[in-house]
Write a protein that binds this DNA or RNA. Structure first.
Length: 279
DNA sequence: ATTGTGGCCTGCCCGC
DNA sequence: TGCGGGCAGGCCACAA
């Protein structure tokens, strides 16, 4: 499913759509437009403009209309002397089955839990680009959506770049289960169910552990494995390509020590972990 | 304020 | 062979 890794591939793909004039907007599904924005409003804003930058925070893809804007992620506080131009941003969420397609090229080859091939009726949003190009969002399950000027401040630091102090702050001293905490997008952005299982398996930490029970050394280890896992999965090409993902299932054994994997529900999500080395 | 739960959406797979 | 129930999880509304 699209987690941080897939959305990063979508972002890279979307960079090829920058600076190409938008000539049409196709938004056939009102459900897919969030926050009360209408297809006609999007059309008024977008037609004649072009995307200036493609950014990502967690699982949210952000495409700014207008001239290029810093791609270093979050923009800091703007000096009062220079408020800068008003930027219109199109936020795209992919749910768990959303794909981004540019000029017929898909951002990822395969999406776990999603049908293998896209059908025309699953296209929920698209922009036509000058010269015949097309940027489209295909989402069979309709769990994603398009939002105008999404509130980026509601997302925690991106998991791909989070520092140790920032991770410590995100974890805090909560009594909530560790897995639920690292999947809380307001605290840490980008980790979905599969990556959470992978990171905790690598770090040898039980998903059920109360967050506050982590020692400083364990938090440091979690940080190292988190960053390493993101890097690995980006290199491998998908959040489903972790070492433990194929071992999530009844009767499966831990690829590290052979113990039988255990199923639990944490934060409302199906969770698989090794009872032997994840403590 | 924080935290937990249920529901939304639809395709797929299993068992009958 | 068709059919229906259960399942998948990101996100949000809602309740405590």
């Amino acid at each position: 499913m699209p987690e941080l890794v897939e959305v990063e591939f979508y972002r890279r793909l979307a960079e090829d759509a920058l600076h190409r004039p938008i000539i049409s907007v196709v938004a056939p599904d009102p459900w897919f437009l969030k926050g009360g924005v209408s297809a006609s409003a999007l059309r008024r804003l977008m037609v004649g403009a072009s995307f200036g930058s493609a950014r990502r925070v967690g699982k949210l893809l952000l495409m700014d209309l207008g001239p290029a804007r810093s791609c270093s992620g979050r923009t800091g506080p703007t000096p009062a002397s220079d408020p800068g131009p008003v930027v219109v941003t199109i936020g795209i969420r992919f749910g768990m089955t959303g794909r981004l397609v540019l000029d017929g090229r898909a951002g990822v080859d395969r999406l776990i839990y999603a049908p293998r091939q896209a059908r025309p009726q699953w296209e929920r949003f698209a922009v036509g680009l000058a010269g015949g190009g097309r940027l489209a969002v295909s989402d069979p399950r309709r769990l994603g959506g398009i939002e105008l000027n999404p509130n980026e401040a509601r997302l925690g630091p991106d998991a791909a770049a989070v520092t140790l102090p920032a991770l410590r702050h995100a974890l805090g001293h909560s009594h909530v289960a560790l897995k639920a905490r690292i999947m809380d997008q307001q605290r840490l952005a980008g980790i979905g169910n599969l990556m959470a299982d992978e990171v905790l398996w690598r770090a040898g930490l039980s998903p059920l552990r109360p967050t506050h029970s982590l020692s400083p050394a364990e938090t440091k280890s979690l940080h190292r494995h988190l960053r390493r896992t993101v890097t690995d999965l980006l290199e491998r090409g998908g959040s489903h390509l972790g070492d433990v993902i194929d071992h999530r299932g009844v009767g499966m054994t831990c690829p590290r020590d052979g113990a039988e994997m255990v199923r639990a529900v944490v934060g409302g999500r199906t969770t698989w972990f090794c009872p032997r080395h994840q403590n």
